[in-house]
């Protein structure tokens, strides 16, 4: 059986375990909440994590497209970028997939698969950095944008460019 087929066959099992492993990065009393509440509005972190993992998994079955991969990772990474994770903890959940797949599939998935997971991790790291950059940008420009734009329109300060705000 080819690797993709057996991955697809075990899709639910793999994703469930991957999800479990991912939310284990939170304190257990938090993980309990994230894993249990099904309503996506009452549990945004759990549902975004679930959604991302499913989409990333489906990407793995195809030829990897870095752009699409990053988009699939976006919801979960965007959240982890503002939580108290170090960079390595924020993207580390990707590597859990290797172990999980090895344990679930009867025949070893091989180096190709490992390389794919590495690519996912790199994409996750890319997205993590973009999110962090956007946080720092917001941090640097927010209040100036708010106040100075109004002042500028009122002619109280000279025209501002985005660079001036930084």
């Amino acid at each position: 059986m080819n690797i993709n087929k057996s991955l697809e066959k075990n899709r639910k099992k793999i994703i469930d375990q991957w999800f479990e492993a991912t939310i284990k990065s939170y304190p257990p009393e938090t993980a309990r909440v994230l894993g249990r509440i099904k309503n996506r509005f009452d549990n945004p972190v759990g549902s975004a994590t679930q959604e991302s993992l499913e989409n990333v998994f489906d990407q793995l079955l195809k030829d990897l497209d870095p752009g699409k991969l990053e988009d699939a990772l976006d919801p979960v990474i965007r959240i982890r970028a503002v939580q108290k994770f170090t960079a390595s903890d924020a993207v580390g959940f990707v590597f859990e997939l290797k172990e999980i797949v090895k344990n679930i599939l009867e025949n070893a998935p091989g180096e190709d698969f490992d390389r794919k997971v590495d690519q996912v991790a790199l994409a996750a790291f890319n997205r993590f950095m973009k999110c962090r950059e956007s946080i720092f940008l917001i941090k640097a420009t927010e209040s100036k944008k708010r106040i100075h734009r109004a002042f500028e329109r009122a002619g109280l300060v000279t025209e501002l460019k985005d660079e001036d705000l930084l």
């Binding site: 249990r36 509440i37 099904k38 309503n39 509005f41 009452d42």
Partner: peptide
């Protein structure tokens, strides 16, 4: 109140 929901597959779900 929001515990009873229909999920994407229109199956009735409820919260613990």
């Amino acid at each position: 109140k929001a515990a009873f929901n229909r999920n994407e597959k229109n199956k009735l779900t409820y919260s613990w």
